[in-house]
Write a protein that binds this DNA or RNA. Structure first.
Lengths: 195, 195
DNA sequence: CATCTAATTAGATAATAATCTAATTAGGAG
DNA sequence: CTCCTAATTAGATTATTATCTAATTAGATG
């Protein structure tokens, strides 16, 4: 999920009139005139808000005789409402990873592959170990931030010279997402599972 | 939940800088200077955004020697993210109620207590029946709208003359919420359960 | 107390956006 | 084709806000 879409969604719902419209449409489709009547606003104002809601796909419409009926796109709201808590769920994730590390397994693997100053000795060949190392590196990236390729390269290179391979592994493992040369962390639950 | 707080939350998260701050703080507390450095913004700008985040209680702070550490108030984000989907979940609720009515029980009770034109003959004495009737009336109110007492009275009176009793029952049953003489529907899941 | 660092406040600027009235477009219905 | 209703677009106004620089406040430390 691109962070801009998430922000756009929240911005859209950050207006009392639009929340009221959504709330009304939750009871079933309504014409523009009906909305204007209920909310005591003019038709152009309603039109303005509906177009904002349509921009983020929250509202769809259907023409019927003279009128246009607007209706909610339910899934979209569920989708975006979940996105933010999931995006920041890294904290819990970190605690889980802490637990795993405390249980010894992850910790040992990381110790084996990292130097004392945190650099990566070699890229593990074994899938599971490789993923543990990749997750560790990813945990040092900023969630929600968009990285240009050169910035990402510089970041990775502070751990290992073969940044190209690691960058590629981030994409393969669904750890990061790329669009037009811009990279961003995926939500944790999209990452490839270990085992 | 007051609709204004929900809107304020969404408005707060409708800014890419604030989402990034939240995302960073999800990894643990940070000082203001650190945030400014990571986001490449000036200290006053960070201060501005933090105060917005504090307004909706998403961020708390703690002074430590020379610096102030800001940290996430996790629960608040979960709370508000759930609020909007729940507020509009009336549609699903309506379908459930439809099912119950189709199953006969609710329908029969409503038929017994409502006249042909939808007015209420008497207020049921039995708790369960009373709640079914109250829910039916509440389902005709607009979710998310704030009602002045006189408007709410007028609405109720179109169904039964003893609006005062029914208005009180709305509060007792947690169906509505009152603040400074303004009434508003509560989210459905806060309503008192039948049985 | 004097000094340093971190944070906030004040004030300015530029951009965004909510709402209205007036004008325009798009479909029915006669 | 002409009229009617509903919706959108244009344009103006007003309010809000994200960001900056400069000034101020609040603690810590020597």
């Amino acid at each position: 999920m691109q962070i801009e879409k998430l922000v756009a969604f929240h911005k859209t719902m950050g207006d009392v009139t639009r929340v009221r419209i959504v709330s009304i449409l939750a009871n079933g489709p309504k014409r523009g005139q009906a909305l204007a009547g209920i909310l005591k606003l003019t038709a152009p104002t309603i039109s303005h808000h509906l177009s904002k809601l349509k921009e983020v796909n929250l509202v769809k419409d259907r023409r019927e005789k003279n009128s246009v009926y607007y209706f909610l796109n339910d899934d979209v709201l569920q989708h975006y409402s979940r996105a933010l808590p999931e995006m920041i769920s890294y904290k819990g994730e970190f605690n889980n990873m802490d637990k795993l590390q405390r249980s010894g397994e992850h910790k040992k693997i990381l110790e084996n592959f990292l130097t004392a100053d945190g650099r990566l000795k070699t890229i593990p060949a074994q899938r599971k170990k490789k993923l543990i190392v990749l997750y560790h590196l990813a945990s040092l990236l900023e969630r929600g931030r968009k990285y240009e390729e050169k910035d990402l390269n510089a970041f990775i290179q502070s751990f290992h010279d073969d940044y190209a391979t690691i960058r590629r592994e981030f994409i393969i493992g669904s750890i990061m997402y790329r669009e037009n040369g811009i990279y961003e962390l995926n939500p944790r639950e999209m990452w490839a599972a270990i085992e």
